[in-house]
Design a protein around this nucleic acid. Structure first.
Lengths: 178, 178
DNA sequence: ACCACTTGTGCGTTATAACGCACAAATGCT
DNA sequence: AGCATTTGTGCGTTATAACGCACAAGTGGT
């Protein structure tokens, strides 16, 4: 549960700095008794208190509220053919810690792919690897060359188009609301 | 300040659902009086209360604690030559919301680049675009072909190596502690 | 072993979060 | 306009966060 995650993170961050509860109290401006309560899950801190702790430890707030991972991968992903227009493979599947996923796409010549709006707050990155990609964003088409990038809000309808006679290869990263 | 961000986010999320304070109280299990206090910045909610709100609104916690952005880019980035071994360009510069940045690299034949440990908690993604890249992670070399990916903890020393006679092109994403 | 010091815990007190409820203000309908 | 209903605010009460302090437990040095 959340209290357990916060407890674990606060203790881990404090120990990794080799701070006693007293030292942590000095650095954060939160009493040592309260830090102890938090670490033992005996109390749910207010946002103001958690902010003080994060600030004293020079961390973003999210370092204290999220579960941490420790995995490594060294594996290629299989290619998945969706509809013959936009062929893609998964480069990194969705990770709840980073709240993002990444795909590699191939868009055939003279093909177009329209996408519905994602959920509110989703941001999408485009990296063109080869060819010339046209993107429909804010009801306007924008041309991207190999090496170009685009970041846009994907919680609106958007599209991908290849008006050339060679395939376009691009990567996209979907960032879910932080 | 944090209280202002939380107030703004809670109100925005409630209004976008067209919920009154009473409806939001029903959905989240937090009293309407408290929701009103939060939105008017008259109180700093505990983590347990904020979690209830996020859960009732079907949001991750971070949707309530972070400032939101609304920008778009459609611009290529310049190439930067560091030391003749690892040539790179910035694909996406550091974004405090997403807490990540992305680069495109070219590693010349028979060259090696060693990197010191980043700050605690940093995660790095590697996407090999062309050629064969060797990565040093956990004191072991790992070979990646074009299209392969790797995710690893970059808060330890690591390295990049090209043992072939053609340049390697790869992208990397640096994720700073969430 | 003994002693000094540090560290973490528990307790009682104070401050404030969180609540239920009454009611003022706003909205919609006739 | 008048009335009914909804919405948001303020108040007093209850629950709990946050604190200072005493002290038990742990650690290190002689």
């Amino acid at each position: 549960m959340l209290e357990g995650i916060i407890a674990e993170n606060v203790k881990l961050q404090r120990k990794s700095r080799q701070w006693s509860l007293s030292q942590a109290a000095l650095e954060t401006g939160v009493s040592k008794a309260m830090l102890g309560q938090i670490e033992r899950q005996e109390s749910s801190p207010t946002m103001a208190t958690l902010w003080k702790i994060a600030k004293g430890m020079q961390l973003p707030l999210t370092a204290l509220i999220e579960r941490h991972t420790d995995e490594q991968y060294c594996t290629p992903q299989p290619s998945i053919n969706v509809d013959g227009v936009l062929d893609f493979s998964v480069l990194f599947s969705f990770d709840p810690l980073l709240r993002s996923e990444m795909f590699a796409h191939t868009l055939e010549p003279l093909k177009e792919h329209l996408s519905n709006a994602h959920q509110f707050g989703v941001i999408e990155d485009i990296i063109v690897i080869s060819g010339t990609l046209e993107m429909l964003v804010d009801e306007q088409w924008c041309e991207l060359l190999a090496g170009d990038t685009l970041r846009f809000r994907a919680d609106q309808p958007h599209g991908y188009r290849n008006n050339s006679n060679i395939p376009v290869i691009f990567h996209n990263i979907i960032h879910y609301p932080a």
